[in-house]
Design a protein around this nucleic acid. Structure first.
Length: 462
RNA sequence: GUCCCUAUCGUCUAGUCUGGUCUAGGACACUACCCUUUCACGGUAAGAACCGGGGUUCGAAUCCCCGUGGGGACGCCA
């Protein structure tokens, strides 16, 4: 069998969304699994709707997700190849050439200034309910689609269709097939929304005398709420959104791979090498999958938890810089120490600024509801006074969590109380929050001076 | 309206090809409890599904047919 050649063929007419990303991913996975070639082809024949910004988003998103292309537009380390150019806007001469082949074979005609592809068979006219007009139908044999996911699908293509617009530009169906022939594509992996177009494509392949590639129509991703497939406007649809929010690309890749494919059994979190090894077309599901942002967030948390602390810190640093989150001139060691406390606790990088706000300066928000709750029980004023006194003593060792813990515990024991009687009120006083890392770790990082100042300032407001 | 695809917990799915091992497994979410220094994490438990009807068969989640539901396509968009 000839080596696998697959392509991802986006059109830069909108932001890169999750469905496109998964189509790209399945192509990339199949190429890597089979040792084949992954080709990026830009379908920019619709000049009105294309933009360079969208093109850049495609390149960025693919790179971010780790999908390198072997052939295609040259960007960074990716691209090049012998079947270029890889942007359809630069392939006009090739389309002309292929059009001549069809013309010579008598398979085209002109109508209303456009060039049409002529189906073979008897013709008759019927009234079309959907389009509310008379249309010419052609009696043809069903087109056979050999689909690696759905098996054999038959569909009758019974109307001629435009292949060159009256403005002289070729349309999608034509360029798609011509390029797949010219680029020697062996497997066409794309969304199921193209399944009904495929009969047109098979008709074109046959007209060119070329055996069609193997098709693989993957199920669609449905929107989380409401009917229909996911579109660019839906919450969670845009890849660059995940990038911006500090999601880990490995987690995004792992999650969207599982939307429509799985290796069988219970495995979910898998390194990409493992996914490449196990991925295959027949295992792809045939039914659509609904997007679930909670499960996506959970997968991200799993990856976050497994990240080496130094990498977590680097990601956090990059996120803080991109978002211009001030850290009060914190040095690397302090930043790293704070992140070490936060990493096992949070679900996403985006939670970090709010979760760690009180570490960077004295200007942090207080959760008033939590404050009221913490003050409602016991004798908070007395507990704070005792704590201040104890922490002021030179005997309080702010370098050690266990020493601080022992100190508070002995304070509690002497009064027949528990650690919790100090923990809650001290936490709200020092962090403004009711939840966070271990209190003693917070005290240690903040240091005696800042802790005492905050406690005293807090007591003064009571 | 026509054509095509599809159907297991609320959601993602395992199991379907090769019928019996399925009183249908896992994960997310939800609930309770445990762990605990709050919050997470983790652990335990609970609830939760084979769309309906026919057929084939000793036996159907699994094979076939018909409904129904869901999705897609029907552009001089891609």
């Amino acid at each position: 069998m000839s080596p696998v050649r697959v392509r991802f063929a986006p059109s830069p007419t909108g932001f890169f969304h999750i469905g496109s990303a998964r189509t790209a991913l399945f192509n990339w996975l199949y190429a890597r699994h089979t040792g084949g070639t992954f080709i990026l082809r830009i379908e920019d024949t619709d000049k009105e709707r294309n933009s360079d910004e969208f093109l850049r988003v495609i390149y960025d998103s693919l790179a971010w997700l780790g999908m390198n292309w072997d052939e295609g537009p040259r960007v960074g380390a990716n691209g090049g190849g012998d079947f270029g150019p890889y942007r359809q806007s630069e392939r006009a001469h090739i389309y002309r050439e292929y059009l001549e082949k069809l013309r010579a074979a008598g398979r085209t005609y002109e109508k209303d200034g456009a060039t049409w592809f002529k189906l073979l068979g008897e013709r008759h006219t019927v009234f079309d309910e959907h389009r509310k007009k008379e249309v010419e139908k052609v009696k043809t044999a069903p087109m056979v689609i050999d689909d690696a996911i759905r098996g054999r699908v038959e569909r009758v293509e019974d109307e001629d269709f435009v292949i060159f617009r009256s403005d002289g530009n070729p349309v999608f169906h034509f360029v798609n097939v011509v390029d797949d022939i010219a680029m020697k594509i062996t497997h066409v992996i794309r969304g199921e929304d193209h399944l009904s177009n495929t009969s047109k494509h098979v008709a074109l392949f046959e007209a060119f005398g070329v055996k069609p590639p193997v098709f693989a129509h993957i199920p669609l991703i449905l929107k989380q709420n409401g009917p229909g497939k996911m579109s660019k406007r839906d919450q969670g649809a845009l890849i660059e959104e995940y990038q911006r929010r500090g999601y880990l690309p490995e987690a995004v890749v792992n999650f969207i791979t599982l939307l429509g494919w799985n290796p069988g059994g219970d495995r979910e979190k898998m390194p990409i090498e493992e996914i490449v090894r196990l991925f295959d077309l027949p295992a792809v599901n045939q039914s659509n999958a609904r997007f679930d942002d909670k499960k996506m967030a959970h997968m991200n948390m799993l990856y976050l938890l497994a990240l080496p602390p130094a990498e977590f810190t680097a990601k956090a640093r990059a996120y803080f810089e991109a978002r211009k989150v001030a850290t009060g001139g914190a040095d690397d060691a302090y930043f790293e120490a704070v992140m070490a406390l936060a990493q096992p606790k949070i679900k996403g990088i985006e939670e970090l600024p709010a979760y760690t706000a009180y570490f960077w300066g004295e200007d942090y928000p207080t959760d008033e509801k939590a404050k009221a709750k913490a003050l409602a029980k016991g004798e908070p004023k007395a507990r704070l006074a005792e704590l201040i006194e104890a922490l002021r003593s030179p005997a309080a060792d702010f370098a050690s969590d266990t020493a601080l813990e022992a100190l508070i515990k002995s304070l509690a024991e002497a009064r027949g109380l528990g650690f919790g009687d100090y923990q809650g009120v001290a936490r709200i006083a020092v962090t403004g929050l009711s939840a966070g890392p271990s209190l003693t770790s917070i005290l240690r990082l903040l240091g005696r001076e800042r802790v005492l100042a905050r406690l005293e300032r807090f007591v003064a407001t009571l």
